[in-house]
Amino acid sequence: MIKTWELDPNFKEEIMKERGGEHLTACFQCSTCTIGCPITEYVPSYNPRKIIQMSLLGMRKEVLSNPDLWVCLICQTCTARCPQDVRISDLLSAIRRIADKEAEAGNIKIDSSRPIFDKAFQHQLEKYGRLYDIGLAKEYYPKREGSFFKGMMAMMNDYKDFGMRMFKKGKMGPKAMFPEKVKDRAVMKKIFEEMGEK
């Protein structure tokens, strides 16, 4: 039972203020996005149009804490096909950013490691200007697993074969052990300071 008076009617405006969220209300619930989404096969509960309907109604908490937000591949299939130009890929990104902020503020809990990964990734960019795989892994795994040790174990598990394979092929040489850095790292910092998530 959904009691609309207990919901947040401003949630849709909150989303629409975000870049990419502007077209939320254009949705006419045709189900194109959901039907065409490649992820639904693996995560049957994932239903973009339902997320949109819930957002429109103002089910802020339910939407933001929905772990399904984080399985989106940003593959843009929905965006390309949406007859109303809702730009669902971008819209979900907008919702994820709100969720992220809410989680940061401790208002909700996100049941996904993706924000951890994304953040770790961004940290590399902020620091080096380019992706530093090892730095990323070193930050991501421990945070995901909750401890340094567990994180290292998980990393080993994921990387032992892969790393060796890459190494053999000359794709993960000693050079990769150190970050490739942009010379003008100051500007990176500035960019993240100005535009990054606050």
Partner: peptide, 12 residues
């Protein structure tokens, strides 16, 4: 009963 959400919705 909203068929999209598959749930009852109440409005005052």
């Amino acid at each position: 009963f909203d068929v999209i959400l598959n749930d009852d919705v109440q409005i005052k």
